[in-house]
């Protein structure tokens, strides 16, 4: 049996907590660590990853691929500065959410691809996790739940955690935009609600909106900032997790 990509789903019920920013930067960080990475934008109504990376809008992307109209190599764009592969929705027809069968077909294609990692950015809220079933059954997937240190986002994160629990997907919590305010929810409180410690705590960082404006991911633009160092550390944890699972699989053997 060939190697299967490891899926990293970035999700939250609350909007605007930094899913897209973190997906883009983790994908770039994994790429910088030498892995083969595909960044997948499953925001069917509002694909944003292209905007973050300065890629041109595509008229033949995820939807066409899922519908079987084009090949993967045609649908995927390459982010020239890093060589990162990106698959997003075309804007035309983006209002129509693809049918579940399309999604399943898409994931079958992706499962057979040669990527080490597939980082998946999602729209806010719940989504049909069943489309990831094959990844889940292989155990080749983890979710990063993004929250900010306030009540609504944290409550939403617990909901997201329950959604992943129901689907049997391993998940970890990432706290973003930490500003250490007196009225921020403390990591301890969040840990008590979520049940375990957050895997990463990323600071609020002025260079993030700037990097989005410049369309250069923060880990490239400001590689030494607290945010970038946090992302790189997180990418390493994810890589270790994937390796541990792969090692375990090869031991149990097929």
């Amino acid at each position: 049996m060939g190697k299967v990509p490891f899926g990293v789903i970035v999700a939250s019920h609350k909007g605007g907590v930094g899913k897209t920013t973190i997906s883009v930067n983790i994908a770039v960080a994994l790429k910088l660590l030498g892995y083969n990475v595909l960044l997948l934008d499953t925001d069917f109504t509002d694909p944003n990853i292209g905007v973050h990376l300065g890629l041109e809008d595509t008229d033949a992307g995820l939807l066409a691929l899922a519908a079987g109209k084009i090949t993967a190599s045609r649908a995927i764009s390459v982010h020239a500065p890093t060589g990162l592969h990106v698959l997003s929705c075309e804007l035309e027809g983006s209002v129509a959410i693809p049918k579940l069968v399309y999604a399943v077909r898409l994931f079958n294609i992706l499962l057979r691809s040669r990527y080490d990692f597939i980082v998946v950015d999602t729209p806010p809220g719940s989504f049909p996790i069943s489309i990831f079933n094959k990844f889940t059954r292989l155990g080749k997937m983890m979710a990063l739940i993004i929250t900010t240190p306030d009540t609504t986002a944290s409550t939403a994160a617990i909901k997201t955690a329950m959604m992943f629990d129901n689907a049997n997907v391993a998940h970890e919590l990432v706290i973003n935009m930490d500003r250490k305010r007196r009225y921020s929810i403390s990591p301890k409180e969040i840990r008590e609600a979520y049940g375990k410690k957050a895997i990463a705590m990323l600071p609020f960082d002025e260079s993030i909106p700037m990097s989005i404006g410049e369309r250069i991911p923060a880990v490239l633009l400001k590689s030494r900032s607290g945010f970038s160092r946090g992302i790189i550390a997180l990418a390493k944890i994810v890589a270790e997790r994937a390796k541990a699972i792969a090692d375990k699989d090869s031991k149990t053997g097929d």
Binding site: G16, V17, D46, T152
Partner: peptide, 10 residues
């Protein structure tokens, strides 16, 4: 409304 999340609707 907003198409993007977390912009301050609520």
């Amino acid at each position: 409304s907003s198409q993007k999340g977390g912009v301050g609707k609520t």
